[in-house]
Design a protein around this nucleic acid. Structure first.
Length: 284
DNA sequence: GTCCAGGACCTAG
DNA sequence: CTAGGTCATGGA
């Protein structure tokens, strides 16, 4: 058992963990339960910051600071957002929303499974995947069984059959996940190398994987590698941009992506996350 | 029963 | 370059 108080301000833990970046966090009595690496973690927002507890002994908490990105100064990022009505509304509605820094493989695998799935269903698929292929962690009473397991490594998925993966309800995404896991496990695809590339090259590289197009590549680059300029355009964002910025005329997806790349600045990915969470929770 | 979901990919025009 | 069909599964 170990615990720590991470002193941060302008950090909305609930919005951050529930904004479609991660799929394994569950809220229970204002406490968020999840798994980071091989650590089961409980997080609670307090006036002083974020209080964290783990089941196992912990001496160095850098892995958690890294995941939560507690050293980021949010104000400096918000200042780079365009000053227009939709952006002002989104920031006001989701104050304290952050971008996390996930393990690249977990992020890649999760978003390969995300295509044309609702977030609740992505959670379900990822939960089954972890339960059946992840490493068993120390038992935690009162917690859903999926949180007894770490996210499976590429090697653990690479040895599975397509049928076993389909049994996790991932449908046509199974061959893509299997192919990615095998290429990473056998070394023919290097997730570490992405760190050293610039954004266009990194995006192109990820898109070489089957089942990874521009949108999924952008999610992985933003949530897993910290490429802040990556701007994932899914059906929600596409509709939102169309409606909030071009209400009169219909704009092609191509031009919409060009607009996003030029209008939102160096931290476009953050502004995208504010818009995404805003339209999914506050609008409608 | 119908529509749609944090898409990608392939084909035809 | 754009439009349309296909893939699997389940929530709304």
């Amino acid at each position: 058992m170990a615990n720590i108080l991470l002193r941060v301000r302008d950090y909305n833990l609930a919005a951050t963990l529930d904004s479609g970046q991660v799929f394994r966090w569950h809220e229970q009595n204002d406490t968020w339960n999840g798994v980071v690496g091989k650590h089961f973690v409980r997080l609670k927002q307090t006036p002083e910051g974020i209080f964290a507890e783990t089941a196992s002994q912990v001496n160095d908490w850098d892995w958690l600071r890294e995941f939560l990105q507690t050293k980021i100064e949010l104000e400096a990022i918000l200042k780079t957002f365009p000053d227009d009505p939709p952006m002002r509304d989104a920031v006001a509605a989701c104050s304290g929303l952050r971008i996390l820094r996930q393990d690249p493989w977990e992020c890649l695998a999760s978003f390969i499974l995300s295509s044309t799935k609702q977030i609740v269903q992505i959670r379900q698929i990822v939960s089954l995947l972890c339960e059946r292929f992840g490493e068993r962690l120390a038992p935690q009473p009162h917690i859903g069984s999926d949180l007894f397991h770490s996210f499976p490594m590429p090697q653990q998925i690479a040895t599975a059959s397509e049928a076993e993966l389909r049994a996790c309800k991932m449908g046509f995404r199974a061959p893509s996940l299997l192919a990615a896991a095998r290429r990473i496990a056998d070394g023919s695809f290097d997730l570490e190398a992405i760190h050293k590339m610039d954004y266009p090259e990194a995006r192109e590289e990820l898109m070489k994987l089957r089942g990874v197009g521009g949108k999924i590549a952008d999610c992985v680059l933003l949530f897993g590698y910290g490429f802040d300029s990556a701007f994932p355009v899914d059906v929600w964002i596409e509709r939102a941009l169309q409606r909030l910025y071009f209400p009169r005329r219909r704009v092609s997806e191509k031009r919409l992506r060009h607009f996003a790349a030029t209008h939102f600045g160096p931290h476009a990915g953050w502004s995208q996350q504010y818009l995404f969470h805003y339209i999914r929770t506050k609008l409608e």
